[in-house]
Each structure stands twice: as structure tokens, then as C-alpha cells.
Amino acid sequence: MKKELPEDTPKPADSILEPRNQIFNKKVDDVANMDNNSKLWRWLIRANWRHPERPRSITEGKDNYP
């Protein structure tokens, strides 16, 4: 992505470009306004479908996990 930026465009920091996904936020007790459900999700660097909670997490035994 950095190579595709137009000339004279500031390059983003490498930390911004790290792969990340949104995961369900287990710490939320209640969401008063479902029109804004942003509290239900949080960004986690290097989370993906094989490692849903952190890079070393696994999905084994979570067939019926929400």
C-alpha cells in the first residue's frame, strides 16, 4: 500500500497497517442504543477466523461458541 501512494503523500506508520479484525467485546454488559452497536466490537491486531481472540488462540472446542 505504501508503494501506491501519490508523491508527496505522507506515508502511514507501519503500526497502522498491521492486519486487524473486529472481535466481539465480552466486557459489554448492556447496549442501550442498538443503532450504535460500536461498543459490541473491538479491534484486535492479528486476530482472524483461525485465531479469534489473539494470535495464539485456537478454535478447537468452540463449535457452538457465539
Rank of each mutant, 00 (worst) to 15 (best):
N25R: 02
E18I: 11
L40V: 00
A32G: 14
N21V: 00
D63N: 08
A13V: 11
D35I: 08
D29C: 06
G61E: 04
H51E: 08
M34C: 12
N64I: 09
P12I: 02
D29L: 06
L44Q: 15
L40N: 04
I23V: 11
D30P: 01
R50H: 14
L17P: 06
E18Q: 15
K62H: 10
M34A: 11
K39D: 11
E60P: 02
F24T: 03
E53H: 10
A13I: 12
N33T: 05
P52V: 00
R46Y: 15
V31R: 03
N36M: 04
Y65Q: 10
T59P: 00
P10E: 07
S57G: 06
L5V: 02
N64S: 11
F24Y: 07
R46D: 13
W43Q: 11
R46K: 15
T59V: 11
E4S: 10
E4H: 12
I45A: 13
R50C: 09
V28Q: 01
E60I: 14
D30A: 12
R42M: 09
K39W: 02
E53A: 09
P66E: 06
Y65T: 03
E7R: 15
K27C: 01
L17C: 09
Y65C: 06
D8W: 11
K3C: 13
G61Y: 04
L17V: 04
F24D: 05
N48M: 01
D35L: 11
I23M: 06
E53G: 04
E7A: 15
S57F: 07
P52H: 03
L44E: 14
R20P: 00
N33E: 07
N25A: 06
N36T: 03
P6K: 04
T59C: 09
P66M: 06
